[in-house]
């Protein structure tokens, strides 16, 4: 198990390094940020001086090596635009993103998993078809549209919830629903398939032949077996929720990582963009490792065979 995890970590480090390299060079293809930093009407000489100060006049490969060296020392560098350490900029945004991801996960898991189980157990019923409609809606409504509709209805017309920004739990509700809807659909579909698959197995018939009700067989036997593919989805979805809230954060003026990413890309704030990429990679690595551990907890075949 430990060796397996070490292997996964090694793989993840290589992947992260690759992504980081790609982002480093891609960002620099977009031009250099010096022009965005100087006031309008600055002379070519002034621009050249600033460019030299920032180090953007050095060959790309030299900049790249310098960046990696700095990174290995645990230093994410200074933001060119905000003149602050990248680490503290990121640090101030992560709590908001985590809060939104947690809210969305509650929506996604809280609705998606029960809906998936119900769709499998009551297959062919009116309930299944109603839930399928809900899942379909969650899956197909773009967040910029559903978000704005919700703001209009609940924020403007009814005035029940704040339209945007961060103001305690009420302000979390709409962005969580907007962001969680797509995940909810993934959880529901995966859970439905997994439970259907398990329900057709002999051990369910055997459990029922022992006198268990279908419900008891689902709770005692099917749930754990069906959980394995759902955990895989959960790892990906939690990663997406932490990393993929760009649109929702923009629509709801939520000061998280996604909003920061948009701002940093627009301002060619290279080091901030690179730090966000690092953060996102890190999130996916941790989630996948957690999933591996959870597999082993659920499944004795994995736990006992290594």
């Amino acid at each position: 198990m430990l060796r397996h995890i070490a292997g996964r970590v090694g793989q993840a480090i290589v992947t992260t390094f690759g992504v980081l390299t790609l982002v480093f060079f891609l960002m620099r293809l977009s031009g250099d940020p010096t022009l965005l930093l100087v006031p309008q009407g600055a002379s070519a000489h002034q621009i050249a001086i600033l460019r030299h100060q920032l180090g953007f006049d050095r060959p790309l490969i030299v900049q790249y090596v310098a960046y990696l060296r700095q990174l290995l020392q645990g230093n994410l560098g200074m933001s060119l635009v905000q003149r602050m350490p990248v680490a503290s900029i990121l640090g101030s945004r992560i709590p908001y993103t985590t809060e939104l991801a947690a809210g969305s996960l509650v929506v996604a898991v809280g609705i998606g998993i029960p809906a998936g189980v119900a769709m499998a157990v009551w297959r062919g019923s009116l309930l299944e078809r109603s839930l399928a409609a809900l899942v379909f809606a969650g899956q197909s409504m773009p967040t910029f549209w559903s978000g704005i509709l919700m703001i209009l209805l609940f924020g403007v017309v009814l005035g029940w919830l704040p339209t945007s920004g961060v103001a305690g739990l009420p302000s979390l509700i709409m962005p969580s629903i907007a962001l969680g809807a797509l995940s909810m659909a993934s959880f529901a579909r995966m859970t439905r398939i997994a439970v259907l698959d398990e329900l057709s197995r002999d051990y369910v018939a055997a459990a029922r032949a022992r006198g268990l009700s279908l419900g008891a067989a689902v709770v005692r036997h099917v749930a754990r077996n069906a959980a394995i593919p759902v955990v895989t989805v959960a790892a990906l979805e939690i990663g997406n929720l932490l990393a993929g809230a760009v649109i929702v954060e923009t629509v709801f003026a939520w000061p998280g990582i996604g909003q920061l990413a948009i701002q940093a890309i627009a301002a060619r704030d290279f080091l901030v963009v690179q730090a966000i990429v690092l953060f996102v990679s890190f999130v996916f690595i941790v989630m996948n490792l957690l999933a591996d551990v959870v597999y082993a907890v659920i499944d004795p075949r994995i736990r006992l065979s290594s």
């Binding site: 002999d202 055997a206 022992r210 754990r224 077996n225 004795p300």
Partner: peptide
């Protein structure tokens, strides 16, 4: 449900498939 397993019970063709893989055999 009170009859199944108590007064009439069943065994299956593929014993390994008829047991829940994640549950100890004694519990089943």
């Amino acid at each position: 449900r009170q009859i199944r397993g108590r007064r009439i019970s069943m065994i299956f063709q593929e014993p390994q498939a008829a047991l829940d893989p994640l549950s100890p055999v004694g519990a089943q």
